[in-house]
Structure formats: C-alpha cells, structure tokens
Amino acid sequence: MTRDKLDRLADLRAACTLEKHAEARRQLTLLGPTPWPVPTAADPDQERLERWILHRCAWPNGITAYPFGFQHVTPEPDHLTIHVESNPEHVRELVKELLPNEYEGDLGGVPGLRAGRDNTGAPLLYLAGTRASVTLRGIAAKDWQVAVTGWRSHLASIGARPLWDISPTAMSMEESDLLQWFDPPSTVKRPCWLASALLRRIGTFTASGLPARLTGWTTGGTQHDRWKFEFEFIPGHRRAHERVLNLLTHPEVGLPLRVTKDVCSCRSGHGHGCWATLQATSGHQGSVQLLFHDCDPGTVTSWESRWPAQFAQIRAGNSAKTADRAAADCGSPQENPS
C-alpha cells in the first residue's frame, strides 16, 4: 500500500472512529492487507456484546461531550476498545447500565456480562462462556472501583443481587431467560451486525458537529433492528446532516445501507429539522432513522448550567469546525455494495 493511500484510508478511518490520524494509520498497518479500514466483528458473540452495550448506553441520563460518552473507539476483528469520557458521573452511569443484576425476577444491565481487568488494569467487559470482550479506557481505576462498590451497595440496600462477578463461564437462570425472550428459539436469531457496526463507527455521529444531546433507541422483539437516533444541536449550528449520510454509505468505510428518505432543511435554515432513513441492502436486515433539529434555547441554558464542562467541549469543537475533512470529501450518499 502506498503512503498516500495509507494516509487517505487513515483519514477515513479516523472520521469513523475519532482516533487520531497517527493511531488510525498504526491500526491499519497492524490489520495488514484488508479492503475494510474499519473491521467488522469477526464473531457473532462479539457483535452481540457490542449491540448490548450500544443498546444500554444510547440514551444517556445526562449530557456527554461525545456520543454516549465515548470519545473514540479502536475496532479490531476480535475485540473493541472504547475510550470513555473521564467523568465520574458518566462512569457511575456506565456501571449502572452495563453490569447485570437481578431484582424480584427482573434483570438489569447486560445479560451475561462479566467484569474484570486487562493486563493494564483497565476495565474488561466480556460475555460469560464466550471470547467476546470490550475494553474501557480513559477511566481512572479509582473511579471505576468507587462506582462498582457504590452500585453494589445500592443493590444490597434494595435486596437486589449482583450478577457480574458470578461464574465467568455460565449465565444465571435469569440471564438465560431474558435472552430467550429477546431471541426466541423459534425465530430467526436477532442480527446484531448493525448496532455493532454503528458502535465501531462512533465518529459518524459527530460528522455534522457535536450535538448538545444525542439519544438512540431501537425496536425490541423483532427479527431485525430498527435504530433511531435524535441529534439536538445548539441553535445556530449548521446541521450539515449530509456528512453523516456520506460516512454511513461510504464505499470504503460505510455500511451496506441505502438512503431511502432524506428531508432536509439544513441549507434553508427553516423548518423544524431534517430527517433521513437508511435501509439495509445486500441481504442484510435492519434500518436507521436519523432526526436532526435545534434545541430550545431555554433548554440549552438549563443544560449548560448543569453540565458546563461538557458544553464547553461541545462549543469548542463546533466553533473550531473539527468535523473531519474526510467526511466532507466523501461525496453524495450512495449504496455500499458490501
């Protein structure tokens, strides 16, 4: 691979993952000859773990400077590293949303998830009985330990049972029951490729700038995922949502998605917002709907007084126009043939 091609692919990868250019270039070199600068998860269990993480984290309770509090990701075929905002409040939220527990027959967190440490001391999340794993970086060891201890104490106070440190090789009955409800044996197994691929492209959600608030959700209990994401911007920010579509459908770093609807008021500055729908192609199942609009000014004022540090990062990022140049140069949305 020529130096120019490696640099171009590193730019594209960095636009998707939010890695620094040098790190994206290094990761591409480690991957070796491959047609896909952003690798897909090679194992269905890895996809499943990543889907559950996005599912649990896509609706933050507070404001995060980056999508769902994830600053950047480093995807590998058999692993994913998520670099997390170093905010104790966000760490507590992650612990609450991810670590599984049982209370009066109801299950919270990610079923089958177990928590440990990697060889550097960073939190390591894995699925019981599988090789699937995700590393969380950027979290101070003390903050993680305090959050886990606090959550364990809270669960004990209400009579709930922690499940994240039981058998590393088997799920509890409650976890297995939930998974059977979520993926009934009589139906086609729920595909997890779409959520996994979106998580591995966290930078896509910043291609039109850093939103003041980003939330996502999916239709549950169906045989294919229908994801919806709402981008709420500080008034005055140009909602260049075509940059998001360009990355999602890019032939080298995008997904097998086709834009089926695109209602735009970005350029006119009028209307209540923009929205677009992308449908899976090439035999894949799933869809993504995106909604872009401005926040109410009063809401922004309230949020900014509550989360000043996060809003300082959002404003600085947008005023500096840090959307990656690769996203701007991708061209028109198109169907990804992969």
Results as ranks from 00 to 15, higher is better:
Cys274Arg: 09
Glu175Trp: 04
Gly283Asn: 11
Arg13Asn: 02
Arg213His: 10
Trp52Leu: 08
Gly286Arg: 03
Lys228Tyr: 10
Leu28Glu: 02
Leu255Thr: 05
Glu19Pro: 01
Phe233Asn: 04
Glu102Cys: 03
Ser133Tyr: 14
Thr34Lys: 09
Tyr103Lys: 15
Arg3Lys: 11
Tyr66Ile: 01
Asp11Phe: 07
His250Ala: 11
Ala212Cys: 07
Gly331Asp: 12
Leu257Asp: 00
Ile63Val: 12
Met171Cys: 10
Phe229Asp: 01
Ile314Ala: 06
His250Asn: 14
Ala141Gly: 09
Ser133Gln: 15
Ala58Trp: 05
Ser332Phe: 10
Arg131Phe: 10
Ile139Asp: 00
Cys57Val: 11
Phe70Lys: 00
Asp118Cys: 10
Pro35Arg: 09
Phe231Cys: 09
Thr34Pro: 08
Pro75Glu: 01
Pro75Asp: 01
Asp329Pro: 00
Thr215Ala: 03
Trp193Thr: 04
Ala197Pro: 01
Ala280Gln: 06
Ala122Phe: 10
Pro251Ala: 07
Thr64Pro: 00
Arg131Trp: 08
Gly317Asp: 04
Leu99Ile: 05
His272Ala: 15
Ala326Pro: 01
Arg25Gly: 02
Arg226His: 13
Gln310Gly: 04
Glu50Lys: 07
Ala140His: 11
Gln313Thr: 15
Lys142Ser: 13
Ala58Pro: 02
Arg92His: 13
Trp217Ile: 07
Thr322Tyr: 12
Gln71Thr: 01
Asn87Gln: 13
Thr277Glu: 10
Gly116Lys: 09
Pro60Thr: 05
Thr204Tyr: 09
Thr169Phe: 15
Trp275Phe: 14
Ile53Val: 05
Trp227Leu: 11
Lys321Pro: 06
Phe311Leu: 05
Leu28Ile: 03
Pro60Trp: 06
Glu50Tyr: 05
Leu199Tyr: 01
Asp78Leu: 13
Ala58Thr: 03
Pro88Tyr: 11
